[in-house]
Structure formats: C-alpha cells, structure tokens
Amino acid sequence: MQLLMTAMSVSEKIRTKGIEIGERTSHLPLSFRLGEDQWVVIFRFGVVVTVGLSDKERNDILSELEPFIDEPDTSIETESLFIQTGSNEDKFEGDYVRVTELTRQHVLTMADILAKSVMLGRYEAAMSEVFQQIEPLALRLRSGVGKTRTYRELVSTIGSALLIQHTMVGGVEVNEKPEILWEHPELERLYLKLEDEFEIIERSKALERKLKLVTDTTEKQLGLQHNAHSLRVEWYIVILIIVEIMLTLYEMFIKHV
C-alpha cells in the first residue's frame, strides 16, 4: 500500500494540552492513530504531520486544531514523503520509504525528520529576508558612509536571529535524535538515511552560520552607533564647559567695566 506523509508548518507554537482527535499513541510529540494506516503527529513548535489522509481529511484536522494555534502562519511550508508498506525490510529507496508495516515507531521516526525539514525551510525563508536587510548595512559599514539603521531596527534584527536560534536549539532540537530511537535502535539506520536525504545537518549548520553573520554585523553597527553617541555626548560636555568659562569671564572682566 502506498501512503503519503505530509508535514505542515502552521504556526510558531501549538498548545498540545487538551487536543484529542483519535487514539493517542504518544505524548511528546503528541500523536494519534485515526484509523488503519492513518496518523497525525503534532509538534509543539508549530508543525503538524499527517499520514494516509486525503486533502479534505487533512484540512478537517487543521480546522479541529485551530483553537490550539496562536498566530497561524500566513503561508504554510510543507514537506512530503511517500511510504510503501509490505516490503521485506525497512529502507529508503528512490522517492519511497519502504517498510514491512507502518508502526507507531516508524511514524514517529519519519515524522521527526519531516518536521525538522519543514521548520528549517521556514527559517531559511525568514533568514533570506533578513539577509536582504543586512547586505546594504554591511556595504555601508565597508564604505563608512551612508545612513545607518535606527537602534530599534538593529535590536529587532538581533532579536529575530536569537529567536530562531533559540527555537532551533531548545524547541526543534534539530541536531538531536528523537527519543523513539532509544526505544527502537533498529530504526536508526532509516533515520540517518532520511536525515542525509533531507540534508538536515548541512542545512542546520548553514543556517547557524547565517545567524552568526547577522548578529555579528548588527552588533558591530550597534557598537559604532554607541561610540558615535558617546563621542557626541563628550563634545556636548566640552561645549558646555567652554560656554560656562566664557560666561564666567564675561562676569569677571566685561560686565563690571
């Protein structure tokens, strides 16, 4: 039997407490079995993975989850994987994952990879927008001329980069293997094959390099602004001292003539 697994990035966070849409099969991530070879896996970092559902059934599930989703994404990032059951062994071949039977552990293992891939896709798109803002800033820093961005804009850029980094490390745990592999180490080979196919590690490292470049460039601009501000304050103090001296001299030598 051929099945389709689809991962959808629907928001930055899903509140999983209180969700009941079928037979619960795990708590972290939250997963449900809806029927024979039909599954839903919900990740707190805003990704929903479905297996064996039609487009209508998938949309119905998303509608049921709406009360638990805060600030839904305006555009949904997706990633898909074809599954073929009834194979002699578990393996990734061509565009298919071939398994002997689709078990809970198979679903959780493959869902983890797809969820990470779709989240990386979301943040790669976000970083592309940030890079469009950082490039002219870097050019101005090199030339030493041109109007700089405001303090609030620079802090906002750093905040966005740090939020992505925090989610990748603390929420998505891109570079960590799922707990299901500790219970079923026989699936690690399939997991590593899928991890390599979707370039999870390579994309994560590339994103980390971009995050570092963004924060470094922005922090340098903040440092330059701080130094310029300090220099202006020093000049204001010098001018005030000069004015005070002139007024004192005026009082002493001119006003009493």
Rank of each mutant, 00 (worst) to 15 (best):
V155N: 06
E124A: 07
M110F: 02
Y236T: 09
R152D: 14
E71I: 10
I180Y: 03
L192P: 08
E101V: 05
R142V: 12
K56H: 12
F131Y: 11
T215G: 07
R44F: 08
L211W: 02
V145M: 13
G223Y: 02
V233C: 06
R24E: 13
T78A: 09
L65A: 02
D90K: 09
F43D: 01
R140G: 04
M8P: 01
V155S: 08
S156T: 12
L120N: 00
R33W: 09
V145L: 14
S143M: 08
L154E: 08
P185R: 07
M5E: 03
V214E: 06
V243T: 13
N227W: 02
T148I: 12
I158C: 10
F68V: 09
V48P: 05
Q221L: 11
S143K: 13
L213S: 08
I200F: 06
V40Y: 01
T109A: 00
S54H: 02
V99M: 00
E197P: 05
R232K: 08
E135M: 05
I237L: 15
E101Q: 11
E173T: 12
E153I: 09
D112I: 06
F131T: 13
E124G: 14
L162I: 11
I239P: 07
V155C: 05
V41W: 04
N88L: 12
F92M: 13
P67W: 12
